[in-house]
Design a binder for these strands. Structure first.
Lengths: 135, 135
DNA sequence: TTAAAATCAGAATAAAAAATCTGTTTTTAT
DNA sequence: ATAAAAACAGATTTTTTATTCTGATTTTAA
């Protein structure tokens, strides 16, 4: 809706990994199956998350990915920056105006408020009471 | 950003036509040039707007399109319904959840407020102090 | 040591969205 | 009448985004 698929998927996979018990290595294939995301696409997302230190990867048999953070250590703005658009926050919701900060249209304040919330949110805030089923 | 291009363009073209003096017939080509939208794409949008009674079309030499409403008679929700998604308002902003009304994530209230504003907005509200230049 | 299981990387493909093209019909100014 | 200008309709192409494929490398359990 407001984010691209990669960003959406990153929320989903990190939530899932945070909630998985045992903190063992989970293979991309298993995760993909569990949360219903194309395996290959998920692999790319996990690679990026590895490089940025959200997860640890282990190659070879028995390998996979292990989460390195808790939900409240994962800032939504970091994921947006990583997977969506660098200048997400200066974009116009309506899409017509390049100079959103100067705009005073009827939804401007609502949009500013939403962005403020988003800037303060971590994965816990997003996932808390958020009924997504991973399927 | 939040809408598809057709919806964005419909805001733009209707705003432009409302502000054009004289209420004469304007050709799609001239409008397209003025507001920087691909001519053929704009033509399709204008056709839809014709069928729904927002504008009147006149074929033949000297023909074109004439606006039939004022900005405050044009509800944003009508344009969203026409060009974007029928069930726009029940969609999840984050994109993961099918059942947005039940969701309680951190941006839920912000999103609900924004949609409420959008439901009440007409083109005047959107365009008012909204610095888009048609270019 | 070896085969299996996994990451990793880049290329190729598919799907969706946006834009363009081609041609027909209609209307009207000349 | 006729030519020009315009809407109109549908097909096609391009662009962007999402997904899948291919193969190489790494690691480890057996």
């Amino acid at each position: 809706m407001i984010f691209n698929k990669s960003t959406e998927y990153s929320f989903k996979v990190l939530s899932y990994m945070c909630e998985a018990k045992g903190h063992k290595y989970l293979s991309a294939g298993d995760i993909a199956l569990a949360i219903n995301i194309p395996k290959e696409f998920l692999s790319k997302i996990l690679q990026k998350l590895t490089h940025k230190g959200f997860v640890n990867s282990k190659r070879g048999k028995g390998g996979g990915f292990k989460i390195l953070k808790t939900k409240n250590e994962i800032a939504i703005k970091e994921l947006i920056k990583l997977f969506d658009n660098e200048n997400f926050y200066s974009k116009c919701l309506i899409g017509l105006n390049d100079d959103c900060p100067e705009c005073k249209c009827s939804v401007h304040n609502n949009w500013e408020n939403l962005k403020t919330t988003l800037l303060k949110s971590n994965l816990e805030d997003i996932k808390e009471n958020y009924f997504f089923t991973f399927k």
